[in-house]
């Protein structure tokens, strides 16, 4: 199994469009949408025969007021500012609650129950270029890293079951837990950036996270011609840090037009400059030892 992860640091640089394009280049693949906060690939690939599993993202403390004596002991123990008391009535703020169980354990009246957040889902299905695995975190829930791990585990099973050796992981933005879960143990990490000061700033942080795991990412500069000078700066930074620039993708409205039609750029216009460049980058990435 060869696993390629696509991440970005900064959001909206084109991770999903590029991962999706890679998935439709040749042969069959497994593609995993690890952006469980805002999954999008299923919109593009419209998978069929979907399987669904539920995922418990955490727990929330709920008070049983018939038992609560209002003693306020839980207030002293909570480190997340989630519990307050108004007119002797203890209130738990669902948004701040971390689900650590401590209040439920120390409550002398046994008045606090921990309720699982079980609205998040894991899906897997087939599309015309192979299999798609994705997670959808229910709004406001946390622990997307754990759901990403579940997506990764399912991806591995699917890859073995259907004998599909190539796995593409479309990562979430940022550099936190879900990103770390996306890149752990993969063979290659591609960082997609854009020629803006924010793009470069976030590229540096994303590269740091990859370098921490003793690997070197490669970089795609998307929409490079929106600011050629910034592109040069990014290029220079990559050179100084021994990071390979895998390729430059120009800005082209066709990328958006393709998405609107529910297609990847490869499906939309095979001979477009972007399609050709992505094909070259992919072949180089996959053949690189």
């Amino acid at each position: 199994m060869k696993q390629i992860a696509v991440i970005s640091g900064k959001g909206g640089t084109g991770k999903s469009s590029i991962s999706a394009a890679f998935a439709t280049l040749n042969g069959e693949v497994v593609i995993a949408d690890c952006d469980v906060d805002a999954a999008n690939l299923y919109l593009l690939f419209k998978p069929s025969d979907e399987e669904e599993e539920s995922f418990i993202s955490g727990y929330k403390a709920v008070i049983n007021y018939e038992k609560c004596s209002g003693c306020g002991l839980c207030l002293n123990y909570c480190r997340f500012d989630a519990i307050s008391s108004q007119n002797n009535r203890v209130i738990i703020d669902e948004i701040s609650c971390d689900g650590c169980f401590l209040c439920s354990r120390i409550c002398p009246e046994n008045a606090i129950k921990m309720v699982p957040n079980d609205k998040s889902r894991l899906y897997s299905g087939s599309f015309k270029n192979g299999r798609l695995v994705y997670g959808r975190l229910a709004p406001g829930e946390e622990n997307s890293g754990k759901l990403v791990n579940m997506v990764r585990e399912k991806t591995k099973q699917v890859s073995e079951k259907f004998d599909l050796g190539t796995v593409i992981l479309d990562g979430p933005p940022g550099i936190g837990c879900p990103v770390i879960s996306t890149i752990t143990g993969v063979d290659k990490v591609i960082i997609v950036t854009e020629p803006t000061i924010s793009g470069l700033h976030d590229l540096k942080r994303a590269a740091e996270i990859v370098l921490k795991s003793d690997r070197k990412p490669s970089v795609i500069i998307n929409k490079w011609d929106l600011n050629a000078e910034m592109t040069d700066q990014i290029h220079e930074w990559c050179n100084q840090n021994g990071i390979k620039v895998a390729g430059l993708i120009p800005f082209d409205k066709k990328m958006v037009e393709a998405m609107v039609q529910g297609k990847t750029i490869i499906e939309f216009d095979k001979t477009n400059v972007i399609s050709m460049e992505l094909k070259r980058i992919w072949n180089e990435t996959i053949n690189d030892k």
Partner: peptide, 26 residues
């Protein structure tokens, strides 16, 4: 970005939310 915990923490501390989007399917 996103709709998970970091987003909730920020918007719940606010009185009003401006959502910025782009006219694409995603």
């Amino acid at each position: 970005p996103g709709t998970a915990c970091p987003f909730i923490q920020t918007v719940s501390a606010s009185d009003y939310v401006i959502l910025v989007t782009e006219p694409t399917p995603f």
